[in-house]
Nucleic acid binder design. Sequence first.
DNA 1: CCCCAGGAGAGTC
DNA 2: GACTCTCATGGG
Length: 276
Amino acid sequence: MEEITVRTEDLSVKETLECGQVFRYFKSGKGYTVISLNKCAYLYEENGFTHILSNDINYFYNYFDLGRDYSKIKQDIKSFNIEYLDKSVEASKGLRLLRQDPVETAFSFIISQNNNIKRIQNSINKICENCGEKLEFLNETYYAFPSVETLADKSVEFYKSLGLGYRNEYILRFAKLLSGGFDFNSLCNFSTPQIEKELLKIHGIGKKVADCITLFGFYKYDSFPVDTWIEKLYLENLGGTEKDRKKISEELVSKFKELSGFVQQYLFYYKRSLSK
DNA sequence: CCCCAGGAGAGTC
DNA sequence: GACTCTCATGGG
């Protein structure tokens, strides 16, 4: 087991894991276990420091993007002088955007549509428990995210039995597309609009899910996913006038550019935390 | 029992 | 191009 220690002000476990960008984490003891593909890490905070424990610590150094300086990002965001945005940043100063696996991210956000976060987590966990490799980590059992071949080998009825609802067909078709040889990961070499154009060709992926995949799976920060929460705060708290979600997204990206993804997460997390 | 959830596809005009 | 309807299912 290897360990990395960083200042909690640079990595808040709760803010980073519960801000809606990732679904595969579990509270345990005084911290959280997070699973990405078939890798596990345990995180906890103590005396102003955040500890990350893993057998594959280099993977999680990249996963938590620890080489990135967030003080610069927060400073640049502050220069926009938007009160609600400043409050949002102030409320989650230790939030970081993760560098998640593109394929796992895509499946996760296909499931996310017209769904709530609790049920998204349950659905993904069921898929992993039924199809994924068994993992032992710190005396607990977890399950890896399955291979696309395993997922493609199942039936629509199987996914329906897991409670995926009408998304069952989207999942199966996407799994078959990837297992058929579609090189999904190589999309990362394209620009954000080019990736989005390719994603929109996939059945079950629309504008919002595509934006989540470019942001969370391909680390393209000129993406601004607009869901029901962002739409609400855009109208209620940012003085926005646009009604169409696609146009709202375009307006926000043209304003925040390469900071869009970060701004989006601060706002989303803050708005949701207030309504609970 | 109701409305809602990190929406998207298909149909209509 | 713009509405509108429908799609499962559990959370609150």
